[in-house]
Amino acid sequence: MNRTLLLAAVLAIAPLGARAQGTDPNLGRMLASNCANCHGTNGASVGGMPSLAGKPRAALLQMLREYRDGKRPATIMHQLAKGYTDAQLEAVSTYLSAQKPN
């Protein structure tokens, strides 16, 4: 096979592959901005709702998965957590755990 053609084909496919996997460079930031309406900008609550900023990633992710799977009682989070893919729950947990608490 023509090596130049092969290389061109690989180069053409690579960025498409990356996009198909949903690699928004700001994925965690975008998802955390869904949380901010109730839990404060970047997860730093001003009160009345739990703060999420700076919480350990594993704890956040476990909580979100338990809400999603109906294993953790909730008023609303069991409904919202079902709207996200597991990769999205991971990305938002990573982002929030890296934020500064109030």
Binding site: C38, G40, T41, V46, G48, M49, T75, I76, Q79, K82
Partner: peptide, 26 residues
């Protein structure tokens, strides 16, 4: 995903007002 409350509650009363404080701050 999504849905409505199982029933009306005072817990959600507190969350409702806290929602306002947090979104205004956001």
């Amino acid at each position: 995903s999504g849905g409505v409350s199982a029933q009306r509650s005072e817990i959600e009363g507190a969350y409702g007002w806290a929602w306002a404080q947090n979104i205004w701050s956001d």
